[in-house]
Amino acid sequence: MANFEIPLTPDPQTFTVSLSGVDYRLTVQWRNADGAGWILDIADTSANPIIQGIPLVTGVNLLEQYAYLGFTGALWVQTTADPDAVPTFDNLGVGSHLYWYTA
Rank of each mutant, 00 (worst) to 15 (best):
F4K: 04
F4M: 14
I6W: 00
P7E: 10
L8F: 02
T9G: 14
T9C: 12
T9A: 15
P10F: 11
D11V: 14
D11W: 07
P12Y: 11
T14G: 10
T14D: 07
F15T: 06
F15N: 07
T16D: 15
V17C: 05
S18P: 05
L19M: 05
S20Y: 01
S20M: 01
G21Y: 05
G21T: 08
G21K: 08
V22G: 00
V22Q: 08
D23Y: 06
D23M: 05
R25I: 04
R25S: 04
R25A: 01
R25N: 10
T27C: 10
V28S: 02
V28Q: 02
Q29D: 13
R31H: 13
N32F: 09
N32C: 05
A33W: 08
A33N: 04
D34L: 12
D34A: 09
G35I: 03
A36T: 02
G37T: 02
W38V: 02
W38C: 01
I39E: 13
I39Y: 15
L40F: 06
L40M: 06
A43D: 14
D44G: 05
D44R: 10
T45D: 11
S46I: 06
A47D: 15
Q52E: 14
I54C: 05
P55T: 11
P55C: 13
P55N: 13
L56N: 07
V57E: 12
V57T: 15
G59V: 09
G59P: 12
N61C: 03
L62C: 06
L63D: 06
Q65T: 14
Y66G: 10
Y66D: 14
A67G: 09
A67H: 12
Y68A: 14
L69F: 04
L69I: 07
G70K: 09
G70I: 07
T72V: 07
T72Y: 00
A74P: 02
A74R: 05
A74S: 11
L75P: 01
L75V: 02
W76P: 02
V77G: 01
V77D: 01
Q78N: 09
T79A: 05
T79W: 03
A81D: 13
D82S: 10
P83F: 00
P83V: 02
D84H: 08
